[in-house]
Protein backbone atom coordinates (compact mmCIF):
# COMPACT_ATOMS: atom_id res chain seq x y z
CA UNK A 1 0.00 0.00 0.00
CA UNK A 2 2.73 2.38 1.11
CA UNK A 3 4.84 1.37 -1.83
CA UNK A 4 2.13 2.05 -4.37
CA UNK A 5 1.46 5.46 -2.78
CA UNK A 6 5.13 6.27 -2.99
CA UNK A 7 5.19 5.19 -6.64
CA UNK A 8 2.20 7.42 -7.44
CA UNK A 9 3.84 10.32 -5.64
CA UNK A 10 7.05 9.80 -7.56
CA UNK A 11 5.15 9.60 -10.83
CA UNK A 12 3.38 12.85 -10.03
CA UNK A 13 6.67 14.54 -9.19
CA UNK A 14 8.30 13.41 -12.38
CA UNK A 15 5.25 14.54 -14.37
CA UNK A 16 5.42 17.98 -12.77
CA UNK A 17 9.12 18.15 -13.55
CA UNK A 18 8.40 17.20 -17.09
CA UNK A 19 5.78 19.95 -17.40
CA UNK A 20 8.18 22.53 -15.97
CA UNK A 21 10.84 21.31 -18.31
CA UNK A 22 8.53 21.75 -21.28
CA UNK A 23 7.48 25.19 -20.07
CA UNK A 24 11.13 26.22 -19.73
CA UNK A 25 11.88 24.85 -23.15
CA UNK A 26 9.07 26.83 -24.77
CA UNK A 27 9.16 29.81 -22.43
CA UNK A 28 8.86 32.29 -25.28
CA UNK A 29 5.72 30.65 -26.54
CA UNK A 30 4.28 30.65 -23.02
CA UNK A 31 5.12 34.33 -22.77
CA UNK A 32 2.66 34.93 -25.57
CA UNK A 33 -0.04 33.75 -23.19
CA UNK A 34 0.72 36.64 -20.88
CA UNK A 35 -1.40 39.30 -22.61
CA UNK A 36 -4.42 36.98 -22.56
CA UNK A 37 -3.90 36.11 -18.92
CA UNK A 38 -3.44 39.76 -18.00
CA UNK A 39 -6.51 40.88 -19.87
CA UNK A 40 -8.51 38.02 -18.37
CA UNK A 41 -7.42 38.98 -14.87
CA UNK A 42 -7.97 42.68 -15.40
CA UNK A 43 -11.21 42.63 -17.31
CA UNK A 44 -12.86 39.43 -16.12
CA UNK A 45 -11.64 38.61 -12.63
CA UNK A 46 -10.81 41.98 -11.12
CA UNK A 47 -14.31 43.42 -11.74
CA UNK A 48 -15.83 40.34 -10.09
CA UNK A 49 -15.55 41.99 -6.72
CA UNK A 50 -18.29 44.29 -8.01
CA UNK A 51 -20.66 41.32 -7.90
CA UNK A 52 -20.80 41.81 -4.13
CA UNK A 53 -22.97 44.80 -4.94
CA UNK A 54 -25.84 42.34 -5.39
CA UNK A 55 -25.78 41.76 -1.63
CA UNK A 56 -25.40 45.40 -0.61
CA UNK A 57 -27.35 48.61 -0.37
CA UNK A 58 -25.22 50.77 -2.62
CA UNK A 59 -24.35 54.28 -1.48
CA UNK A 60 -22.55 56.64 -3.85
CA UNK A 61 -20.28 57.98 -1.14
CA UNK A 62 -19.36 54.61 0.39
CA UNK A 63 -18.57 52.81 -2.83
CA UNK A 64 -18.92 49.10 -3.50
CA UNK A 65 -16.87 47.80 -0.59
CA UNK A 66 -18.10 50.31 1.97
CA UNK A 67 -21.84 50.01 1.34
CA UNK A 68 -23.83 48.05 3.93
CA UNK A 69 -24.72 44.37 3.40
CA UNK A 70 -28.38 43.49 2.91
CA UNK A 71 -28.16 39.76 2.18
CA UNK A 72 -30.48 38.40 -0.52
CA UNK A 73 -32.90 41.35 -0.42
CA UNK A 74 -32.41 42.31 -4.06
CA UNK A 75 -32.75 38.72 -5.25
CA UNK A 76 -36.01 38.46 -3.30
CA UNK A 77 -37.23 41.74 -4.80
CA UNK A 78 -36.50 40.46 -8.26
CA UNK A 79 -37.93 36.98 -7.85
CA UNK A 80 -41.10 38.27 -6.20
CA UNK A 81 -41.60 41.13 -8.65
CA UNK A 82 -44.71 40.74 -10.84
CA UNK A 83 -42.59 40.87 -13.97
CA UNK A 84 -40.20 38.08 -12.98
CA UNK A 85 -41.94 35.21 -14.74
CA UNK A 86 -42.86 37.29 -17.78
CA UNK A 87 -39.33 38.54 -18.42
CA UNK A 88 -37.75 35.17 -17.68
CA UNK A 89 -40.19 33.43 -20.00
CA UNK A 90 -39.65 36.02 -22.74
CA UNK A 91 -35.88 35.71 -22.42
CA UNK A 92 -35.93 31.94 -22.66
CA UNK A 93 -38.43 31.92 -25.54
CA UNK A 94 -36.41 34.41 -27.60
CA UNK A 95 -33.12 32.66 -26.86
CA UNK A 96 -34.74 29.30 -27.51
CA UNK A 97 -35.99 30.45 -30.90
CA UNK A 98 -32.57 31.81 -31.72
CA UNK A 99 -31.00 28.47 -30.82
CA UNK A 100 -33.57 26.46 -32.78
CA UNK A 101 -33.40 28.58 -35.93
CA UNK A 102 -30.24 30.60 -35.51
CA UNK A 103 -27.86 27.89 -34.30
CA UNK A 104 -28.11 25.63 -37.37
CA UNK A 105 -27.91 28.62 -39.77
CA UNK A 106 -24.10 29.08 -39.74
CA UNK A 107 -23.61 25.30 -39.94
CA UNK A 108 -25.83 25.10 -43.00
CA UNK A 109 -24.12 28.11 -44.54
CA UNK A 110 -20.71 26.58 -43.89
CA UNK A 111 -21.80 23.26 -45.40
CA UNK A 112 -23.17 25.03 -48.47
CA UNK A 113 -20.03 27.11 -48.88
CA UNK A 114 -17.96 23.98 -48.49
CA UNK A 115 -19.69 22.50 -51.51
CA UNK A 116 -19.01 25.54 -53.72
CA UNK A 117 -16.25 24.80 -56.17
CA UNK A 118 -15.83 28.22 -57.75
CA UNK A 119 -13.37 29.94 -55.40
CA UNK A 120 -14.19 33.50 -56.50
CA UNK A 121 -17.89 33.02 -55.96
CA UNK A 122 -17.25 31.34 -52.61
CA UNK A 123 -15.09 34.21 -51.42
CA UNK A 124 -17.61 36.80 -52.59
CA UNK A 125 -20.40 35.03 -50.71
CA UNK A 126 -18.23 34.67 -47.64
CA UNK A 127 -17.38 38.39 -47.62
CA UNK A 128 -21.00 39.38 -48.14
CA UNK A 129 -22.14 37.12 -45.34
CA UNK A 130 -19.50 38.41 -42.90
CA UNK A 131 -20.30 42.08 -43.48
CA UNK A 132 -23.55 42.30 -41.45
CA UNK A 133 -21.57 41.26 -38.38
CA UNK A 134 -19.79 44.60 -38.48
CA UNK A 135 -22.97 46.64 -38.67
CA UNK A 136 -24.31 47.70 -35.28
CA UNK A 137 -27.80 46.76 -34.22
CA UNK A 138 -28.76 50.44 -34.25
CA UNK A 139 -28.03 50.56 -37.97
CA UNK A 140 -29.64 47.18 -38.63
CA UNK A 141 -32.88 48.16 -36.88
CA UNK A 142 -32.92 51.56 -38.58
CA UNK A 143 -32.56 49.79 -41.94
CA UNK A 144 -35.33 47.40 -41.00
CA UNK A 145 -37.54 50.33 -40.01
CA UNK A 146 -36.96 52.00 -43.37
CA UNK A 147 -37.55 48.80 -45.34
CA UNK A 148 -40.62 47.65 -43.43
CA UNK A 149 -42.31 50.95 -42.55
CA UNK A 150 -45.96 51.12 -43.56
CA UNK A 151 -45.33 54.71 -44.69
CA UNK A 152 -43.34 54.35 -47.90
CA UNK A 153 -41.28 51.27 -47.01
CA UNK A 154 -40.28 49.11 -49.99
CA UNK A 155 -41.94 45.95 -48.66
CA UNK A 156 -45.26 47.65 -48.05
CA UNK A 157 -45.06 49.51 -51.35
CA UNK A 158 -44.77 46.15 -53.08
CA UNK A 159 -47.71 44.84 -51.05
CA UNK A 160 -49.76 47.90 -51.94
CA UNK A 161 -48.94 47.56 -55.63
CA UNK A 162 -50.27 44.01 -55.38
CA UNK A 163 -53.48 45.32 -53.87
CA UNK A 164 -52.62 44.14 -50.36
CA UNK A 165 -52.91 46.14 -47.14
CA UNK A 166 -49.81 47.70 -45.61
CA UNK A 167 -48.59 45.88 -42.51
CA UNK A 168 -46.70 47.46 -39.62
CA UNK A 169 -44.18 44.61 -39.50
CA UNK A 170 -41.99 46.25 -36.87
CA UNK A 171 -44.86 46.98 -34.54
CA UNK A 172 -47.23 44.04 -34.73
CA UNK A 173 -46.92 41.42 -32.05
CA UNK A 174 -47.24 38.50 -34.48
CA UNK A 175 -44.22 39.62 -36.46
CA UNK A 176 -41.95 40.24 -33.49
CA UNK A 177 -40.42 36.76 -33.18
CA UNK A 178 -39.83 36.32 -36.94
CA UNK A 179 -38.22 39.77 -37.07
CA UNK A 180 -35.95 38.96 -34.14
CA UNK A 181 -34.88 35.56 -35.42
CA UNK A 182 -34.46 36.52 -39.06
CA UNK A 183 -32.50 39.68 -38.34
CA UNK A 184 -30.32 37.70 -35.93
CA UNK A 185 -29.61 35.10 -38.58
CA UNK A 186 -28.91 37.76 -41.23
CA UNK A 187 -26.47 39.51 -38.93
CA UNK A 188 -24.68 36.58 -37.32
CA UNK A 189 -24.89 33.49 -39.55
CA UNK A 190 -22.03 34.54 -41.83
CA UNK A 191 -19.62 35.37 -39.06
CA UNK A 192 -20.63 32.26 -37.11
CA UNK A 193 -19.86 30.08 -40.13
CA UNK A 194 -16.13 30.88 -39.90
CA UNK A 195 -15.69 28.44 -37.01
CA UNK A 196 -17.42 25.67 -38.92
CA UNK A 197 -15.52 26.40 -42.12
CA UNK A 198 -12.25 26.05 -40.27
CA UNK A 199 -13.50 22.81 -38.72
CA UNK A 200 -14.51 21.58 -42.16
CA UNK A 201 -11.02 22.20 -43.51
CA UNK A 202 -9.78 19.69 -40.97
CA UNK A 203 -11.91 16.84 -42.33
CA UNK A 204 -9.71 14.43 -44.25
CA UNK A 205 -10.21 14.48 -48.04
CA UNK A 206 -9.31 10.79 -48.19
CA UNK A 207 -12.57 9.96 -46.44
CA UNK A 208 -14.52 11.72 -49.20
CA UNK A 209 -12.51 10.00 -51.90
CA UNK A 210 -13.13 6.59 -50.31
CA UNK A 211 -16.83 7.37 -49.92
CA UNK A 212 -17.15 8.47 -53.54
CA UNK A 213 -15.46 5.26 -54.69
CA UNK A 214 -18.04 3.42 -52.57
CA UNK A 215 -20.78 5.28 -54.45
CA UNK A 216 -21.76 7.91 -51.88
CA UNK A 217 -23.33 11.09 -53.22
CA UNK A 218 -22.90 14.63 -51.85
CA UNK A 219 -25.72 14.32 -49.33
CA UNK A 220 -24.44 11.02 -48.01
CA UNK A 221 -20.92 12.44 -47.76
CA UNK A 222 -22.25 15.39 -45.80
CA UNK A 223 -24.28 13.21 -43.50
CA UNK A 224 -21.73 10.47 -42.90
CA UNK A 225 -18.43 12.33 -43.16
CA UNK A 226 -18.75 16.10 -42.89
CA UNK A 227 -21.19 16.35 -39.98
CA UNK A 228 -19.47 13.68 -37.85
CA UNK A 229 -16.18 15.41 -38.71
CA UNK A 230 -17.29 18.70 -37.19
CA UNK A 231 -19.36 17.13 -34.41
CA UNK A 232 -16.94 18.31 -31.76
CA UNK A 233 -17.11 21.94 -32.88
CA UNK A 234 -20.92 21.82 -33.12
CA UNK A 235 -21.11 20.34 -29.63
CA UNK A 236 -18.90 23.00 -28.07
CA UNK A 237 -20.72 25.82 -29.84
CA UNK A 238 -24.02 24.37 -28.71
CA UNK A 239 -22.88 24.24 -25.08
CA UNK A 240 -21.90 27.92 -25.31
CA UNK A 241 -25.21 28.78 -26.95
CA UNK A 242 -27.19 27.09 -24.19
CA UNK A 243 -25.00 28.76 -21.57
CA UNK A 244 -25.98 32.10 -23.00
CA UNK A 245 -29.69 31.35 -23.04
CA UNK A 246 -30.44 34.23 -20.69
CA UNK A 247 -28.66 36.62 -23.03
CA UNK A 248 -31.38 37.07 -25.59
CA UNK A 249 -29.62 40.03 -27.24
CA UNK A 250 -29.99 43.27 -25.32
CA UNK A 251 -29.43 45.91 -27.99
CA UNK A 252 -31.38 44.08 -30.67
CA UNK A 253 -34.42 43.56 -28.47
CA UNK A 254 -34.32 47.03 -26.93
CA UNK A 255 -34.34 48.58 -30.38
CA UNK A 256 -37.07 46.29 -31.69
CA UNK A 257 -39.38 46.96 -28.75
CA UNK A 258 -42.66 48.58 -29.69
CA UNK A 259 -45.81 49.23 -27.66
CA UNK A 260 -47.64 46.36 -29.34
CA UNK A 261 -44.96 43.79 -28.55
CA UNK A 262 -43.72 44.90 -25.14
CA UNK A 263 -45.62 42.06 -23.48
CA UNK A 264 -43.41 39.51 -25.26
CA UNK A 265 -40.31 41.61 -25.83
CA UNK A 266 -39.36 42.55 -22.29
CA UNK A 267 -36.31 40.44 -21.51
CA UNK A 268 -34.03 40.28 -18.49
CA UNK A 269 -31.52 42.75 -19.89
CA UNK A 270 -34.07 45.40 -20.90
CA UNK A 271 -35.87 44.88 -17.59
CA UNK A 272 -32.58 45.44 -15.76
CA UNK A 273 -32.06 48.68 -17.65
CA UNK A 274 -35.56 49.96 -16.99
CA UNK A 275 -35.96 49.01 -13.35
CA UNK A 276 -32.36 48.96 -12.16
CA UNK A 277 -29.91 51.15 -14.00
CA UNK A 278 -32.40 53.88 -14.93
CA UNK A 279 -33.19 54.36 -11.25
CA UNK A 280 -29.66 54.19 -9.98
CA UNK A 281 -30.42 50.79 -8.41
CA UNK A 282 -27.08 49.32 -9.35
CA UNK A 283 -27.38 46.67 -6.66
CA UNK A 284 -30.68 45.45 -8.08
CA UNK A 285 -29.24 45.37 -11.59
CA UNK A 286 -26.20 43.47 -10.29
CA UNK A 287 -28.45 40.96 -8.53
CA UNK A 288 -30.26 40.24 -11.79
CA UNK A 289 -26.90 39.95 -13.56
CA UNK A 290 -25.61 37.51 -10.96
CA UNK A 291 -28.82 35.50 -11.14
CA UNK A 292 -28.30 35.24 -14.88
CA UNK A 293 -24.70 34.13 -14.48
CA UNK A 294 -25.49 31.43 -11.93
CA UNK A 295 -28.38 30.18 -14.05
CA UNK A 296 -26.13 30.12 -17.13
CA UNK A 297 -23.40 28.23 -15.26
CA UNK A 298 -25.86 25.58 -14.09
CA UNK A 299 -27.33 25.23 -17.57
CA UNK A 300 -23.93 25.06 -19.20
CA UNK A 301 -22.73 22.40 -16.78
CA UNK A 302 -25.85 20.37 -17.44
CA UNK A 303 -25.49 20.66 -21.20
CA UNK A 304 -21.82 19.80 -20.95
CA UNK A 305 -22.67 16.70 -18.94
CA UNK A 306 -25.33 15.57 -21.42
CA UNK A 307 -23.10 16.37 -24.37
CA UNK A 308 -20.22 14.40 -22.89
CA UNK A 309 -22.46 11.46 -22.20
CA UNK A 310 -24.16 11.25 -25.59
CA UNK A 311 -21.80 13.00 -28.03
CA UNK A 312 -18.48 12.55 -26.25
CA UNK A 313 -17.94 16.28 -26.60
CA UNK A 314 -17.37 18.63 -23.69
CA UNK A 315 -15.62 21.81 -22.75
CA UNK A 316 -14.12 20.34 -19.60
Amino acid sequence: MNNSAAVISLEKKSKRKEIWKRIKEHKILYLFLLPCIVSLLVFSYYPMYGATLAFKDYKYNLGIMGSPWVGFKHFEDFITSPEFWTVTRNTIVISGLKIIFGFPAPIILALLLNEVKCTKFKRAVQTMSYLPNFVSWVVVVTLMTVVFTPYGGIVNDIRKSMGLEAIFFMGEKNYFYPMVVLSDIWKNAGWGSIVYLSALSGVSQELYEAAIIDGAGRLKCTWHITLPGIKGTIGIMFIFAVGGILNAGFDQILLLQQPANNEISEILDTFTLKTGLNYGRFEYATAIGLFKSVFALVLMSLTNFISQKFMEVGIW
Partner: peptide, 21 residues
Protein backbone atom coordinates in the same frame (compact mmCIF):
# COMPACT_ATOMS: atom_id res chain seq x y z
CA UNK B 1 14.35 35.13 -32.89
CA UNK B 2 13.99 34.67 -29.16
CA UNK B 3 14.69 38.33 -28.50
CA UNK B 4 12.21 39.36 -31.18
CA UNK B 5 9.58 37.06 -29.71
CA UNK B 6 10.30 38.41 -26.24
CA UNK B 7 9.86 41.98 -27.41
CA UNK B 8 6.64 41.13 -29.26
CA UNK B 9 5.17 39.33 -26.26
CA UNK B 10 6.17 42.17 -23.94
CA UNK B 11 4.57 44.71 -26.23
CA UNK B 12 1.36 42.73 -26.32
CA UNK B 13 1.37 42.48 -22.54
CA UNK B 14 2.03 46.18 -22.25
CA UNK B 15 -0.87 46.89 -24.62
CA UNK B 16 -3.17 44.78 -22.48
CA UNK B 17 -1.96 46.56 -19.38
CA UNK B 18 -2.23 49.98 -20.98
CA UNK B 19 -5.96 49.95 -20.43
CA UNK B 20 -5.30 49.78 -16.70
CA UNK B 21 -3.30 52.97 -16.93
Amino acid sequence: RNILALITASMMAMTALASCG
